[in-house]
Design a protein around this nucleic acid. Sequence first.
RNA 1: GGCCCCGUAGCUCAGCAGGAUAGAGCGACCGCCUCCUAAGCGGUAGGCCACAGGUUCGAAUCCUGUCGGGGCCGCCA
Length: 580
Amino acid sequence: MDIFADIRKIVVGGLTEIARPDALRFDPDRISIERPRDPSHGEIATNAAIMAAKSMNRKPRDLAERVAEALLLDDRIDRAETAGPGFINLTLKREAWMAVIPSILASGANYGRSYMGSGRRVCVEFVSANPTGPLHVGHARGAIFGDALSRLLEFAGYCVTREYYVNDGGAQVDTLARSAHLRYLEANGKAVEFDPNAYKGEYLAELGRTLADEHGDRFVDAPESDWIDLFREASIVAMMALIRRDLASLGIVMDEYFSEKSLYGSGRIEEAIETLRERNLVYEGVLEQPKGKIVEDWEPRRQTLFRSTANGDDVDRPIRKSDGSWTYFAPDIAYHYDKVRRGFDELINVFGSDHSGYTKRMRAAVSALSDGGMAFDIKLIQLVRVMEDGRVAKMSKRAGEFVELREALEAVGSDVARFVMLTRKNDAPLDFDFAAVKEKSKDNPVFYVQYAHARICSVLRKAEREGIDVSDQSLASADLSYLNHALEVEFVRRMAEWPRMVEAAANSHEPHRIAYYLQNLASDLHGLWAKGNETASLRFLQRGEIATSMAKLALIRCAAIAIANGLDILGVTPIQEMRS
RNA sequence: GGCCCCGUAGCUCAGCAGGAUAGAGCGACCGCCUCCUAAGCGGUAGGCCACAGGUUCGAAUCCUGUCGGGGCCGCCA
């Protein structure tokens, strides 16, 4: 049940009725159905008359009057008043709000689930970190965001594929292989010198020892060509194992790992480029030197270029280097061509914000490959600033000085990490402060929300001990006429917003909205709870008055359901009690 | 030089596909536990929504420009 969706139907219905015979000529989705800030504007306000007036060539206020009259015919609506330039302010009957409670109890874990996506297939590509080491805290944000977005979309009725693009084809994995070889030499008792480009993380030392165990000293004096392939393969396998382990510790399971390397030599890159060529989007040419940026060894080079400017990019982009090999962009094009051909209805890429300069050409490519038919969204994830002991921790992967995800999770746990990473919009920077995040107080949003859930569970447990049947089925039959305090009705209104909140968040690809909603919901619960300290009639358990208690228990049980469903979207486990 | 993101309370940030008097947390100040978990709650103070135009019945939100912060800009991914 979604009361806002119901009201929308009624409003649009009323409008259509009045509009006859000159049928309604505007998009009904453009009208707003929302809760006004100012309580004197009713409980739900709509701008429907203002929006429709123009296309119907009527005065907004007159139209509003007519619509308001029509709305009053619905038995859920108590008052419909027109105001301002033509708003219609609605007040619902108390029973209409209260009807939300049994509806939530009946839906349970499905409360808020939407059919908005109607089964459309979405590919969410995220993490896609180079396989050169374990994940660090910065990667974690993209990982958590991507997974939460996936969960959100699933809850909203989409069919989601979680996908990781493994960059196992470029020069970086050769550097990785050489770094592993150095560690291998080390394990064979050789003194080694690391060049500045090498990866120096401890995790490669372990791999070096393993390789020394397996191959002895065979590759100590051998030329690089003898071992590079073997070491590359071994390194990638080992690094991907670390990455999978890290993802698993966050509760993330990918549906697909797509290997960049698998594209080489298979003809698929050539095929994708050929597709672009057929559309006259590929040519041989020379790029101009970028202005304002000094490139020391610049000289004009003839390259194969993608005409990305035809689809909104600022300059055309090279897909084949002057030496004839592919640039990194070429396999990316092939990869996205593959996505297009797999039949997804929508693509979402989660990139680090350092890839912002890459988005235009990517959009241009997808647009060209799908003839403009593919919905394609790129979410940029801002960096995470890790704060430790009040200072900013440095992050450099090659030097091996970064806060590994694993360390962070050992300190704070997956639930906390996930929630905290989702308390900011994806394109806003985020401070991850170890001290603040571990704190168990209202200053920590994770515990604040968890505490609300635990408190409800606590009351339900107590009620049960006192012999009340607190099953959802039993609570659904509670006499809700006992809930007549303004705060209680307000609480129900908040919970009634959950389904539209899910749709709005899913629609805008913004899981942080769920986190904010949960904090508000938790705040309502704590507020109501504390009011019970001064006003005895607001306490959830009323001694000796089963019927009253049942009504209040039904109310808070609904809140627990909404919180649990929200946390589930974020991938956070709701806890039953705080004491430990 | 160009492109992308950002600019909202002292600090950190929300602001719901433009809506009617701009919100939360922290920090500051003042209050609330013989009572379901005070790991909590209430109140006070604090804003020309960077600036200037434009579109609109209506703009923090959309468009243009300026200023300020960050990121990126051929043969690295």
